[in-house]
Design a binder for these strands. Structure first.
Lengths: 273, 273
DNA sequence: GCCTGTGAAAATGTTCACAGCA
DNA sequence: TGCTGTGAACATTTTCACAGGC
């Protein structure tokens, strides 16, 4: 009883794994539209999306029976169905918090244009940034956060502040009514029930790649797989691994990293385009 | 028989889901180190990392028995073990391809400093960018890609080019010897066996949030769950959904999007003022 | 008594393989 | 014949719950 109606055809319960792939299918379908392709088979679509065709068919079957046996899927129709399922047939109002290097890149990113998202406001705390015009928007001071979010009906906030400011900014946007947060700061945000958070994190991605890269060579440290517990561990190694960065307070508030490696601070994560 | 040695204690087969979480634990542990915390329980660590404690314990158990019953885990030691497992006790040489808004943000991102990653080169094709100095590095022309990758021993490439250039740049870095790629361009990259690709994609994340956001309101279109197949579909809706953006070629080669709402692009620019 | 490490159960996700419709 | 839609097998991941060491 997740939703009000009694389960129908496609059922309202689409698996998370499927939801995460629908945007990929949609992107491929869009480019097929551009190339004037009218129909596509699960095999072709799957190949272009980088998944196996059985998986693609099962994914699409969760939305309903939108294909034609012996033929394939009609591109336009499928685009419409997936868009509708993802909620892209309506507009979502987005606010970007933190206008540093990353925030600028995001604000200037035409990808929001991928229909469905409208960046309505940019916020920063630094006087040297507030008032600046970026991609057609004037950067506002975070003091205006609550009022602007309410006025504009922002429902998605993109947090692109330094790690130290992320949680407090998150708390504020949530208190102001935002129910979805996309976090680019390298911290684990905690939010109340009912609020969704997704994170994008460059250093995590790099570390995962490093893990596999190491495997291609040969096990951890590229040496013996470490048999016993204490093995080659020495207290002094702890120091080599100490100079942390992450959650370290930025002393200040909302300046983005990059320019000056202020103290030990660094980080501010990832991104996207 | 994944690796050469016969399975030992921790076994070389760490689940992917676990690998993806280790960096998060590591980040939390680093901040505990900074705060001078010497020991932590699975409950505390899990809470800070935003996961359930049973999951955390199982994850760590894949690395070995590094905890003490009745006590918890020694922070320094765990940092060392996770770092080693992730391959962060050695340095990985990184190259960033594409120095647009995003590439700059990435290049200036101190997060690489999180030990283990060293940005050794920046590449772009635009004459107006080549030669520029960013974060201590001089931007090189992509013609030098192959030679620099070989010289510097780059093993991880970060692709921050427009969608249209991504696959060809990927092919080149792979041919030059790179075996791990972090892709920020909105395209599905295809690579030969043995090469790892991870993607970071803003619009996909936003779309996933939109899906859940829509659910909080009420089903697709916020209207009837669409009973029959043809339902409210009309051909004209196809047009509303056509003017794609994403995979659309940028005509040029390596300029980042944002500045010029090239052609059909919408939103972003016009919005607000 | 407290907290780790882990079997076993449950849930989720993937792949196979084929029935059945166009 | 060709390709979708889907049961059923398989694989992975999560969660439970508790045995056992400190």
């Amino acid at each position: 009883m997740t939703r009000r109606h009694n389960r129908t055809r496609a059922d309202r319960g689409i698996p998370e794994a499927t939801v995460a792939r629908l945007p990929v299918y949609l992107r491929v379908l869009h480019s097929l539209q551009e190339r004037g392709v009218a129909t596509v088979s699960s095999e072709e679509l799957a190949a272009a999306a980088g998944v196996n065709s059985a998986k693609l068919r099962k994914d699409l079957s969760h939305l309903g029976s939108y294909g034609t046996r012996g033929v394939g899927y009609e591109v336009d129709y499928l685009v419409y169905q997936i868009s509708r399922e993802l909620g892209l047939t309506q507009d979502w109002v987005v606010a970007i918090i933190g206008v540093g290097n990353l925030g600028r890149a995001l604000a200037g990113y035409g990808g929001f244009a991928s229909r469905g998202f409208r960046v309505a406001a940019l916020f920063d705390s630094s006087p040297s940034v507030v008032g600046e015009r970026i991609s057609g928007l004037t950067v506002r001071h975070i003091d205006e956060l609550e009022s602007v979010i309410a006025e504009q009906g922002v429902s998605i906030a993109v947090i692109a502040t330094p790690a130290a400011a992320a949680q407090s900014m998150c708390d504020r946007v949530v208190a102001a009514g935002v129910t979805s947060v996309l976090n680019f700061a390298p911290v684990v945000l905690s939010v109340p029930e009912g609020v969704d958070v997704r994170k994008v994190d460059l250093s995590i991605e790099l570390q995962i790649l490093a893990f596999h890269e190491q495997r291609k060579a040969g096990g951890p440290g590229d040496a013996e797989p470490a048999e016993t517990a204490e093995e080659d561990w020495t207290g002094e190694m702890a120091d080599r691994l100490k100079t942390d960065p992450d959650a370290s307070a930025d002393a200040h508030g909302d300046r983005q990293e990059g320019e000056k490696p202020s103290g030990t601070s660094q980080y501010i994560e990832a991104v996207e385009a």
